[in-house]
């Protein structure tokens, strides 16, 4: 039995008011264990991204609770949620979402800057921060691209930089919304291999995907239809 990391209990999310109400997520419950790898699948527009954003503290649920590390996310204020995102959660997005005017290395170090009281703490850890980020870039196979701007990298390379960025604060859980959705098959295999490696080393992964190949790599699949948890398949 592995340690329980996140409990999702009866999560619902509705958008809009009375007349044009959308029930994006409807009473979803499941658990995530530390070190597990979960794939969320389902047709387009059926609430996958909404659920992931709520799990990561980017959005708030209309009902239900999420417990991460003994904290009930719906009871945290905005400041505490930002802190939680900084310390416990790593996000990876479909469109890589690197800041275009920062180099690969600067993109990776960015969460560390954001996490600091940016006016008084600057030089002391600067060197250590950079070394740590370089090591991460090396881990995703991009040590030689550290000073490249995102526009000079391929899609697969950009996504690997984004993964390195998500890892820099040593999060408890990686939440990824279609991380391979914009990659060709070669890059997809590349990134998938990286996920396997991370998962083998103990990282907890949750990813949304439309690709059955990607989904089959995960140890379990959760399907969302009309915002409801439809079936749970464990490998």
């Amino acid at each position: 039995m592995r340690e329980l990391l996140m409990e999702i209990q009866g999560i619902s999310k509705t958008y809009g008011s009375d007349s044009n109400k959308v029930q994006a997520v409807d009473n979803v419950s499941f658990d995530i264990e530390r070190g597990s790898w979960t794939a969320i699948v389902g047709p387009s527009g059926h609430g996958k991204s909404t659920l992931l954003q709520i799990m990561g503290g980017l959005d708030r649920s209309s009902a239900g609770t999420i417990i991460l590390d003994d904290k009930n996310l719906s009871q945290l204020n905005n400041r505490q949620l930002a802190q939680l995102r900084a310390n416990k959660i790593g996000f990876v997005f479909q469109f890589f979402n690197l800041l275009p005017h920062l180099t690969a290395l600067e993109n990776v170090v960015l969460p560390l800057w954001l996490n600091k009281k940016w006016l008084n703490e600057k030089r002391l850890n600067g060197k250590k921060d950079l070394q740590k980020c370089l090591a991460l870039l090396e881990r995703v196979g991009l040590a030689d691209k550290a000073n490249n701007l995102p526009s000079t990298l391929s899609g697969g390379q950009q996504q690997r930089v984004a993964i390195a960025r998500a890892l820099v604060n040593e999060p408890d859980i990686l939440l990824m919304d279609e991380p391979t959705g914009n990659l060709d098959s070669v890059s997809e295999a590349d990134v998938l291999a990286l996920f396997k490696e991370l998962n083998d080393q103990g990282s907890t992964l949750v990813l949304i995907t439309h690709s059955s190949a990607v989904a089959s790599c995960a140890e379990r699949e959760i399907e969302l239809i009309d915002g409801r948890l439809c079936k749970e398949v464990s490998a």
Binding site: R85, F93, L110, L114
Partner: peptide
């Protein structure tokens, strides 16, 4: 605004964005 969202997803506080 998209980048601002990224900064927030990465743990940036409102006050940091403001600053």
């Amino acid at each position: 605004r998209r980048e601002i969202g990224i900064l927030q997803a990465l743990g940036g506080q409102h006050s940091t964005i403001f600053a």
